[in-house]
Amino acid sequence: MEVIPAIDLLDGKCVRLYQGDYSQSQVFDENPVAVAKQWVEQGATRLHLVDLDGAKTGESVNLKSIEAIVQAVPIAVEVGGGLRDRTSVATLLNMGVRWAILGTVAVEKPELVAQLCEEFPDKIIVGIDARNGKVATRGWLETSEVTAQNLAQEMAKMGVAEIIYTDIHRDGTLQGPNLEALRELVSSLSIPVIASGGVSSLTDLLSLLALEPLGVRGAIVGRALYTGDVSLKEAIQAVGSGRYQDVPPDLGNSTFA
């Protein structure tokens, strides 16, 4: 299973929010490029970047920081936050971003997701951020009536490469991932799911590793890396090298529909 460090960008700085609350942000480093290099040095094979300003405003804001990170590291970078039209997605992919993560448009403009999956095959990920099972949009400031599971199934049919599932109530809290929700989600999908939110220890990562045969192929870790609760090197050693995306997943006897 792949351990993916998160770099959340707000005003060009590396921050973490508590349960997605912009008023509860904590700056961990003012140089996100240095942070990215640090995770690479510790063995990261992929970075998860979120433009928090973009998620709130609906357009990419931290492009300079994102481009600087992409140019500075030799590993794959995925980016989400404020990607609500073709131009913003194409801009990121053209600067070397490996995957563009769509969130709000998956709910509001699913036809756009289908178009982008066709134009940029294997480069589109949908991030599903759930609050009590319902999908949150616009930087988690609004909650739709769409369920996470229904949206994931719809997006899988459109050809997205992966689903990133975040339980908002766990994000930034160090309370552990929502294993029950993840198990329910992956049981109905035929594409990989990346878990996000709440990872606080190696024990949490090992509990996610138990879900890997069902389709949980990676875990995004944020606050726990910055506070030192999780060592990236130890985490990678504990759950694997994280290079599953280079080979087709072995789904075995799983119950994917």
Rank of each mutant, 00 (worst) to 15 (best):
D11N: 15
E41V: 11
A106D: 03
A238R: 05
L209E: 15
P213D: 11
V27H: 07
R223I: 13
R86P: 00
E108V: 10
A152T: 04
Q175G: 10
G103F: 03
Q38P: 01
P5N: 03
R84L: 00
V35C: 14
L209D: 14
T57E: 12
P248M: 08
T227M: 12
L17F: 14
A90W: 03
S241M: 12
Q42T: 09
P248W: 07
I75V: 15
E212A: 11
V77G: 08
T143P: 00
I125Y: 09
L232N: 07
F28R: 03
Q237F: 03
G12I: 00
A34T: 09
R84D: 11
I163G: 04
V61R: 06
A76F: 12
V27Y: 08
W140P: 00
W39I: 04
P121Y: 09
G139K: 13
P213S: 06
L93F: 01
P74T: 13
D129T: 10
P74C: 03
M95D: 12
G215E: 03
A219I: 06
G252L: 04
D122M: 08
V160I: 12
K56P: 00
E145F: 07
S188Q: 14
L9H: 04
R183M: 07
K37I: 11
T173C: 06
V77Y: 00
Q42F: 04
M1Y: 11
I75T: 07
D129K: 03
G82N: 03
V50S: 10
L208H: 14
L179I: 14
D53R: 06
I124M: 02
Q153I: 12
L47V: 14
Y165P: 09
D171A: 02
L17M: 14
A152D: 03
H48N: 02
V113R: 06
T137D: 09
A106C: 05
I66F: 11
I7H: 09
K64H: 13
A76C: 06
G252P: 05
R170T: 08
V40Q: 15
F120W: 15
L202E: 06
S187I: 01
G222D: 08
V27L: 09
L83F: 12
S196G: 05
V113P: 03
